[in-house]
């Protein structure tokens, strides 16, 4: 099956140039021979990107933090002076950075820096690291769940939605110029939109996916209803079907303490966790028709199609070449 797909991708006249290039790259890596087994199998899109692996505030000088990124065991240590060192347990090279209170690692060759978040520079938005939560689900599934408006009234009943206000009104989805997607005009009645909310109100949302495993939302603040709170979700790909979610809050001051914000967001994410862990197949299927989407799933459909277009293979079941051509 894999060989068949490769043949199609190399057929002259195949309209998906980027797919063809991606297929070629994977082929070259596989033929490398001398590279480690892990390297040859990993999708270059995630291998050459930056991923969060720890939050500074959870690192303990008395005990190194161990984690796994793209099947590679890592050890992250902090010394008494606050210097953080990330190492691959197999001694391989890595690139390390620190942004937004998180330690970022790139195992391959980074072709761009860690995502720049303009709101993180606004002085009245302190960055609050929520605390990583490990989830037995593929990274793309975690992102897709974050984009989903349909589940709010059920999974987060009493907080981010409620019966009978479960209807998802029409919204717009467009491509972002630098790649990725944006969903605008999303509205949802929320009884408890955030810890500061004292009454239910119609919350306006904008969702963005800027990289394959990074998503964010802008939602109306209960006090400053003309400005938005920003919530980022960075997904650390552990294995193809397990992940660590690193949410980051960039919220406007509304009297809520960082502790209150963290507890609220953890409560919400832990409500999603059992849902995510029971989704089948474990890897996100990208073929059109693999699921039966409804209008409310517009952003999910756009996300899956974008992943297909860039040729992501990590944590997904790629669309057969024929379906990719039709899209």
């Amino acid at each position: 099956m894999a060989r068949f797909a490769r043949t199609i991708a190399h057929t002259p006249g195949c309209p998906k140039k980027r797919n063809r290039a991606a297929a070629k790259t994977r082929w070259t890596l596989r033929r490398g021979g001398l590279a480690t087994a892990a390297m040859t199998a990993i999708d270059p899109i995630v291998w050459n990107d930056w991923h969060p692996v720890a939050a500074r505030c959870t690192l303990d000088p008395a005990r190194a933090h161990t984690t796994v990124l793209l099947n590679q065991p890592l050890t992250i240590a902090i010394d008494g002076a606050g210097t953080i060192t990330a190492r691959r347990d197999d001694g391989g090279a890595l690139h390390q950075d620190e942004r937004y209170g998180l330690v970022w690692v790139c195992l391959g060759t980074p072709d761009r820096p860690v995502l720049v978040i303009a709101e993180a520079d606004e002085p009245d938005r302190p960055a609050v690291v929520v605390g990583a939560v490990a989830v037995r689900a593929a990274g793309p599934r975690v992102i897709e769940n974050f984009l989903d408006l349909g589940h709010l009234g059920y999974v987060h009943a009493g907080y981010l939605g409620d019966d009978p206000h479960t209807r998802v009104l029409p919204y717009s989805v467009a491509a972002l110029p630098q790649g990725g997607i944006i969903a605008t005009g999303c509205r949802m009645y929320q009884p408890q939109a955030s810890p500061a909310a004292t009454e239910g109100f119609d919350v306006e949302y904008v969702y963005k996916v800027e990289r394959a495993l990074i998503t964010c939302l802008y939602k109306s603040n209960p006090l400053h209803r003309d400005r938005f709170d920003v919530i980022y979700l960075f997904v650390q790909p552990v294995t193809e079907t397990t992940s660590v979610a690193h949410p980051l809050l960039l919220c406007l001051p509304d009297g809520t303490t960082p502790q209150g914000l963290r507890a609220f967001q953890q409560t919400i994410f832990l409500q999603d966790k059992p849902i995510l862990e029971n989704q089948r197949p474990a890897r996100l299927p990208l073929a059109d028709g693999a699921d039966t989407p409804i209008a409310a799933d517009k952003s999910s459909v756009a996300y899956r199609r974008w992943l297909s277009a860039i040729g992501l293979t990590w944590g997904v079941i790629p669309a057969p070449a024929k379906a990719a051509r039709a899209a």
Partner: peptide, 11 residues
């Protein structure tokens, strides 16, 4: 969180 209420929409 992680324990389902008897009915999803009972708050």
């Amino acid at each position: 969180s992680g324990v389902f209420p008897p009915m999803a929409n009972v708050t």
